[in-house]
């Protein structure tokens, strides 16, 4: 489902100053992820984790190389088409939740549906269903500042899932949470992976969290240093 082939991502730093410098974030990286996998990406900071996730999430384009998502070559698509891909196929979960502060939990969950032209009524209905799945139906009309960290992240997960995307991308999803809440979030990921067959790709630097995944990829200097398939999950998940 995900095919990265010899992908490079080069940033130019200090553009226009005459002293610009090229920073290579990803170097000839090839990666294949099957549908239904649960992958953790680890690595030191600056190893290219976030860059990889941004490219996988169609927020960024490779400088060179090819990225095929469900057989569709993404690297050459226009901004507007990429937005559509993000809307339909990809769900994002962020470390800092990124909920809109003035919107209720329900409206936050429904947000992606606005951009696919779903009516207000249908949006609400679907958002309610999704909130129920993360057991937050009773919090539908609360605003983010009235929610705990764990609740916020669950709202964010509901938002990521509302379009039934095939891929869930998470960037340090437990980074702002205590370990118990973190475990809850990871177990939700696990459930989604197993029960709904969602492909989960999660960036984390926490080895305990990474251990929940069935495949752990370690990046170093923009290259894959280690790609381990774990047959059995160890610890972490209750």
């Amino acid at each position: 489902m995900i095919d990265l082939e010899r992908v490079n991502r080069v940033y130019v730093v200090g553009k226009g100053s005459g002293l610009f410098q090229e920073v290579i974030a990803l170097k000839d990286l090839s990666l294949h992820v099957e549908s239904g996998e649960f992958v953790a990406i680890t690595g030191a900071s600056g190893s290219g984790k976030s860059t990889l996730l941004n490219i996988l999430g169609c927020l960024d384009r490779p400088t060179s190389g090819s990225y095929r998502l469900d057989g569709l070559e993404v690297s050459g698509l226009s901004d507007a088409v990429l937005a559509r891909v993000r809307n339909q196929k990809i769900g994002f979960v962020f470390q800092s939740y990124n909920l809109l502060p003035r919107h209720t939990a329900l409206d936050n969950v429904a947000l992606p549906l606005i951009y696919s032209g779903v009516s207000r009524k249908a949006r609400r209905r679907r958002a309610e269903v999704e909130l129920e799945r993360v057991q937050l139906k009773d919090r539908s009309h609360h605003r983010p500042n009235e929610l705990s960290g764990g609740q916020s992240q669950r709202v964010a997960i509901a938002r990521a899932l509302i379009q039934n995307p095939s891929i869930l991308l998470a960037d340090e999803p437990t980074g702002n949470l205590d370990s118990r809440t973190g475990r809850e979030i990871i177990s939700i990921f696990h459930e989604l992976n197993v029960e709904r067959g969602v492909t989960v790709i999660m960036v984390t630097h926490d080895p305990v969290v990474a251990a929940a995944a069935r495949r752990v990829i370690r990046l170093a200097d923009g290259e894959i240093a280690e790609d381990l398939a774990q047959t059995s999950r160890q610890g972490g998940v209750a």
Binding site: G57, L59, R84, N87, F92, N98, L100, P112, Y115, S116
Partner: peptide, 15 residues
Amino acid sequence: REVGLRMAVGARRLD
């Protein structure tokens, strides 16, 4: 940030 998020969940630049 809101703009970034909206784009991440599928808002086009036009939106």
